[in-house]
Design a protein around this nucleic acid. Sequence first.
RNA 1: UGCGGGAUAGGAUAAUGGCAGUCCACGGGGCUCAUAUCCCCGAGAUCCAGGUUCGACUCCUGGUCCCGCAACCA
Length: 693
Amino acid sequence: MSHDDFPTDRPAVVTCGLPYATGDLHVGHLRTYISGDVLSRALDTLGQNNAFVSGTDMHGTPVAVQAAKEGVDPETYALRLHEKYADTFPEFGIEFDNYSHTHDETNAELTREFVRAWIDNDHVYEKEIEVAWDPEVDEPLPDRFVEGTCPYCGEKARGDECDEGCQRHLEPGEIEDPTSTLTGNPAEYRTRSHKFLRLNDFKEYLGEFLDRLEGTSNARNQPREWVEGELQDLCITRDMDWGIDYPGESEEDLVLYVWVDAPIEYVASTKQYSERVGSDEYDWERAWKEDGEIVHIIGRDIIQHHTVFWPAMLRGAGYNEPRAVMASGFVNLNGKAFSTSRNRAIWADDYLEEGFHPDLLRYYLVTAGGFQQDVDFAWDRFQERVNGELVGTVGNFWYRSLLFAYRNYEGTPDAELSTEVRDRIEDAIAEFREGLNDYSLRETGAAATRLARFGNEYIQRNEPWKLEAESDEARQVIRDCVQIAKAVGVLIEPIAPGKAQALWDQLAEDGSVHDARLEAALAAPPRKFDEPDELFEKIEDDRVAELEAKLEERVASFDDGESSEDAEEGDGETGEAGGDADLEPLLADRIGFEEFQDLDIRVGRIEVAEGIEGADDLARLEVDVGLERRQVVAGIKQLHDLSELPGEKCILLANMEPAELFGVESNGMILAAGDEADLLTTHGDAEPGERIR
RNA sequence: UGCGGGAUAGGAUAAUGGCAGUCCACGGGGCUCAUAUCCCCGAGAUCCAGGUUCGACUCCUGGUCCCGCAACCA
């Protein structure tokens, strides 16, 4: 790698974080892949030798679990998704030079080479650890599949971290009352021997690496804490069948951790590309082992993997290091996070089925905000950007210029490019180049739209429609405008490759705009071309209303009436997170006093609280309501420390119909507020049995 | 009680400590080759509380809110 401005005379690699084979792609995922594609195309435009690669991440427990659920083997399952992804990307103009998957032999072989190199360089050691195990399915449980009680603060916690309580990191085996989230059964611990990559060998190196890393600032800063403190060595093996076998001495049932073979796929995929086109055209070994410019494009949730584990892995095997990591923000929907489980998302297929050109989404996602910022997707904002910038500014300028040129000159009029316009295009080229070297993709787009805006201003200022068509002055103005139109096409090609090619065709340019370099922006357009068409279409208001309604309907049907707030416009409300769910609207239907009187609400005291075996959320409570002791089932197992509840006062709806849940009879309903089930109680000294009115 | 990122007008984005600028949207006026553009005018902003300073969006202290943080997570 180097710190020279692009283009350099070294091979570059642009990678995108691997999509994980467990679900469909939505526009949030697409942001990463579109950004990678834009960067790669922009580097092409600069004349940088580069490869754009990625692949599907096929290994790991979740794939195996998901496959088992569907009754197929993991490979079949993962390959099906792999093919789906491989088909989807080109539909958005995302054209990898190579797109493979981690189960491919190239990757398996290369991964084993990496691991052997670590072993040879003495970076790997073996240690016995306690592994959580689900006795029913006889599978080891990765940390995330274990829940229990934090030994420090007593809160409910995940296997690896007390995520809701004291935030402490938990070592395997520390958590109390471990249960499997797969089956709800108590988890066992078994002693297993595992392999570790000694990250501490690279501690000093990683600090220096972060100092020179380019890309987004979050990628440089976030891992600092780890690198400066005590690094936990990385456990690189798992007790599983599905994955790449650990290559050392015969450890039959150990496979490599997915985060080992996943990033190596970047290298494997590049190697495949190189082998396909020949090393004269692209030299993967130079790129990865010597001085290539490696740029990783990822979501900001996997920064650590790319700035700590991965550079250590490369270093340990004697490879080159990344030059830049660009960690993007997320995409929100109407101001709130996507929720795939509630179908609150715009799926890749949905977008295409609506008939929108992929370039519109590409433009929106790349220019809607800073790269490390979260961007909001909303159909009305999408409409605003498309109509204002692509239709109004770029499309309108392209069409009016080419139409005027066609009508009066049947192509580009015979005149020299004016100095003013030449200078302005050169400025735009410089802005594009500087933007790219700042890793600001939106700036490359802004350079193009600003130039189109200048074009509109230029044609307006010179009013060629008021001039004699055959006059030198009119020829000059239109020649300039056609040149600007062409230059905008060259500069916007990375973001809108389809539309840029359409313009190229209208200009009767030979070849592909994708091969055009920056110099093409100043090269004369063809003398003759045909009547142009409008390249961007307006999105009408009723179309937007329809799209919004469709989305609301879908989300609402998933919500099952439990929280209808999602069906509302997200007007002005800031995003929510944590326990503060958006408030449900107050009910408009009023009830009479008599109806209220029908509710027999009592003060109670919890005497017994225990989880119901086999149920995720349910707890069995015995509540003293003065006159008698009631057994009640409440969905609070996950939300409260049951051992602390006895003795607490609560509020009970006593005349609730009896119900049987998980074989346990429930005779009443404990009142609690919100998603976190904040239990209602009394402020004063009301005794169990007292009525609430 | 931790770490990182963020908070500037309705939205998006700028400002070595020195006139808070730009784009979209909004109100008013003009121009018209084009799917309407461009020009002119107008309204509108630095998360809060202190401090340093001649001067603070910027630096310092304290706080609030949002997002993420060794999982399958873009």
